[in-house]
Design a protein around this nucleic acid. Structure first.
Lengths: 404, 404
DNA sequence: TTTTCATTTGTGTAATTACACAAACGGCGC
DNA sequence: GCGCCGTTTGTGTAATTACACAAATGAAAA
């Protein structure tokens, strides 16, 4: 049987294609796009394993199965080459024997064909047929990809406008959202992810891929800007803050796991219910990231703008001080004293203000509580500052961050 | 003896004039300008009272004597009319019998002639002679006033430039200062005084007059701007801050006393040693006054920019918040709770943060310490805020000032 | 070298704080 | 009316804090 004749016999619709391949190989077959959504599957009365049945029921490969395939290295191989990949059973994720092949257009992966090979012998002939099927499926997936790309491009343009506050009025935003079949009801937040190094094509592929597969309902869209990955996150109103936080943490964790590149920093801005406020959330997320880079120790555990506390406006005050040529004279005096007396009053003060407790500060500094008390008294004498006065104390706390 | 002939006999120099009047009246005479600096005095071997001798020695009427004259209403009368004023002895300030007359050019008072009338009988003739002497002295004082006015105008122009940072480089400033015979060595600070009502000509006269007489060495110059009185204060470097504070307090007190207009608010800015920083001090003084008007209770006791504490940048943060449409969600949540439950958690929080002590806050609110503790626990539950965290606590303290 | 002075640590005490638990109060809905 | 529930006040306890005072250390000055 020549190749040409065989292709001629192949059906034109993806549904028919799945059944055709299944018939040839004598086993169930599924065709998926690159994001693991089902394009078509062969009709079989019984499903051979949990992974297949769950996939068909959800019209999408379950997340834990995708994870398992990544961890087993299967996905890596499929992305690497266009050759069929034999998969040993992975009982942990309910997956039996498989043979899989990537559907490609040139080097780009458009999707996958999975064959349930259990108790079926795969000869060279069958493998050849699978490759031919993949090449045929490419046509279908190309069309689907083009449609999707155009849609995504529209969405990304819209996102860009939302992020930069140029999307117009509430009414205009809602009209555009309806047109793109996006729901902006509920709570919205912008997340920013920064990678330790410049974004490689591989990282970009993983990020895009994950955005499509990981809790798809909550991540409306993603885009790249200045080596940052931006996400528009959508949640229900109740507990939106916690859900967003958890979601982002999970996303970051998975992304690190998949790319093998650790050191991803992620932040998000205000969780808002009005889509016209999205650009504020965007700015806040950016600012939070900036500040985390500037004050890495102090803001180590911070993820969101809200958690920045006084750091929210520390840059603005710092700029004001510079402009006014302002220096906190108390801090200057303490610094001068420390230099000339080889003491560490400033560190003592910082620790005391940070903990707001003589006990804890003394413990952190490995000194006696009375020593700390003595030093505070010394600071009072040298600078005339009154640490009982909350206003002065607060001012000092902030100025120490800037000038410390 | 006709008036014309008498005037012809009067001498042309102020020194001669004093002696001439003294001869006619048969008693010692001093001629002063409007700021109580001696223009001339008659030569007598013994001075009749302490006030006269001290005045001549210092070439200026001592401050306590001027004060006494104001309090006795003498100065008021002299400014009021051009008629001679009889002064009963004021032993408290070492002053014996006097007769005084103001020297005028139209309505403007240019100076005074004082005659030591002890044991001398003043008849109508002597009084007429005194009036004529005053009219003659007017010529001399007019010249002196014009010279002084021109000099003051130059100084005020210079001050304006210093205040607004347009006086050029350090070298240019010093050159200009030398030209105007001003010393800008040591510590400098700008003070701003605000009157409860618009500045009347009377208040303006008192203010100018006091600036010239009250601790003249420390007040380089004054000017009016937008109903505010601006002073350039000069002190020695050591203890400059305290001296400035004390000086301004004394000045304000005396001005209130003299004008009889209470409610003068005064502030001053950074005490600097570099004359090119004067405009910073000016801006700070203005800002301090502005803030005192905006937060009258919180800043009641504040005189200088340094004492503002966090209020130094509260306006900037407030503007930033407005621009970012930021609201502290913790405060919003507490407000909402207070409204729907008729509680006063926000006031409780404010008091606790202000005092930074459960004990004191409870005392101020007239509640049991445990009640306060309970409310704080409630705040923690409702908002999730952690008052042990200094950063969050500080943020809350500041946001309460803005949003509270 | 001795002396002096700032600094550190230790002891002791009274006030303050955080916390648990119990009891009383008072508005509100059933 | 009755009970529910949030609030307030009171009692008791252990930890923390502020402060005074004494003693030891150690480095710089005399």
């Amino acid at each position: 049987m020549s190749l040409n004749r065989e292709i001629d016999q192949m059906p034109d619709s993806p549904e028919g294609l799945a059944d055709y391949i299944a018939g040839k190989l004598g086993c169930p077959v599924t065709i998926e796009d690159v994001n693991h959504r089902i394009i078509s599957y062969s009709s079989h009365e019984t499903n051979v394993d949990d992974a297949r049945s769950a996939t068909i029921m959800q019209r999408k490969v379950p997340e834990h199965v995708v994870n398992g395939l990544w961890q087993a290295g299967v996905m890596g191989n499929l992305f690497e080459s266009g050759a069929p990949v034999f998969v040993s059973p992975l009982p942990a994720i309910g997956l039996g024997d498989r043979i899989a092949i990537s559907v490609r257009k040139n080097k780009e992966v458009l999707g996958f064909i999975w064959a349930q090979t259990k108790q079926v012998k795969m000869g060279d002939d069958e493998i050849r047929q699978l490759k031919e099927a993949a090449s045929l499926a490419s046509r279908h997936l190309q069309k689907q990809r083009d449609r999707k790309r155009e849609k995504e491009e529209n969405i990304r343009n819209f996102m860009y406008q939302l992020f930069h506050g140029t999307a117009g009025s509430r009414a205009e935003i809602e009209k555009q959202a309806r047109k793109l079949h996006l729901s902006l009801e509920g709570s919205l937040s912008v997340a920013v992810l920064e990678f330790a190094e410049s974004i490689t094509p591989s990282v970009e592929r993983h990020a895009s891929y994950l955005t499509e597969t990981f809790r798809r309902k909550n991540i409306i869209s993603h885009m790249f800007e200045n080596d940052l990955l931006l996400l528009l996150i959508h949640t229900h109103e109740d507990e939106a803050e916690n859900v967003t936080q958890e979601l982002l943490r999970g996303f970051r964790y998975k992304l690190e796991e998949r790319t093998g590149v650790p050191g991803i920093d992620s932040t998000y801005g205000k969780v808002c219910t009005r889509p016209e406020d999205i650009h504020i959330s965007y700015r806040q997320a950016q600012k939070t990231l900036e500040l985390k880079n500037r004050y890495p120790e102090a803001l180590a555990g911070v993820t969101t703008f809200r958690e920045l506390g006084v750091y929210q406006f520390i840059q603005e005050i710092s700029a004001l001080y510079e402009q006014e040529n302002y220096k906190n004279s108390v801090i200057e005096a303490i610094k001068a004293y420390d230099r000339s007396h080889n003491t560490s009053l400033l560190e003592t003060l910082r620790s005391f203000l940070h903990h707001n407790s003589t006990h804890q500060a003394a413990r952190q500094l490995h000194i006696h509580t009375n020593t700390l008390l003595y030093r505070l008294k010394r600071i009072r004498e040298i600078t005339g500052v009154d640490l009982e006065d909350t206003n002065q104390k607060t001012k000092l706390f902030i100025d120490l961050i800037i000038q410390g």
